[in-house]
């Protein structure tokens, strides 16, 4: 079985607060080959009007995937993690993520269905800051490959 369609609409609020650190942003920026000081030098970031170093556009995946893990490992979902394939990913940044942010993430299962034996799950993770203001919406689509006959 790919996924239990009854998890549609389920909300997962147990992800711990994620504290965005300068060194984590630096590490991520280096991994994606960025040499832009906006990721590593607080002064350079402030010169552009940011309160601290800025995370690259896909950094939110670090936070979103931790939260999504709650869905993927939920016994109710019935998902075999080893058969998971990432199909789509989308980020909407309501504002850039910066070092010092304390981010809360909540996962919403927007869709879960079986298609020709494969499972397909759309999860939306809403990331908000300490003031409760929206920061990033991360939507993923994953496929759970059917077992070979």
């Amino acid at each position: 079985m790919g996924v239990n369609p009854e998890i549609v609409g389920k909300i997962y609020t147990d992800a711990p607060v994620y504290e965005v650190g300068r060194e984590k942003i630096r590490e991520f920026a280096q991994a994606i080959r960025s040499t832009d000081p906006v990721h590593t030098d607080p002064e350079a970031a402030r010169a552009l009007g940011y309160p601290d170093v800025v995370a690259p556009p896909t950094f939110a995946i670090v936070i979103a995937q931790r939260c999504e893990g709650l869905v993927m490992t939920d016994p109710d979902a019935g998902i075999d993690y080893s058969r998971l394939v990432h199909g789509e990913q989308r980020f909407t940044h309501h504002r850039p993520i910066v070092a010092g942010d304390r981010l809360t993430s909540v996962a919403h299962v927007d869709d879960a269905r079986l298609m020709a034996g494969n499972g397909r799950v759309i999860t939306r993770v809403e990331i908000t800051d300490a003031a409760g203001e929206p920061v990033t919406t991360a939507v993923s689509m994953v496929l759970i490959r059917a077992e070979e006959a």
């Binding site: 994606i32 960025s34 832009d36 906006v38 990721h39 690259p56 556009p57 980020f91 940044h93």
Partner: peptide
């Protein structure tokens, strides 16, 4: 990263999505 470099500001990307 390719887009950020072109824009000259990594914080300028407001939306980014793809299929694999």
């Amino acid at each position: 990263q390719y887009v950020s470099e072109w824009a000259g500001d990594a914080g300028a990307v407001v939306e980014y999505g793809t299929r694999f």
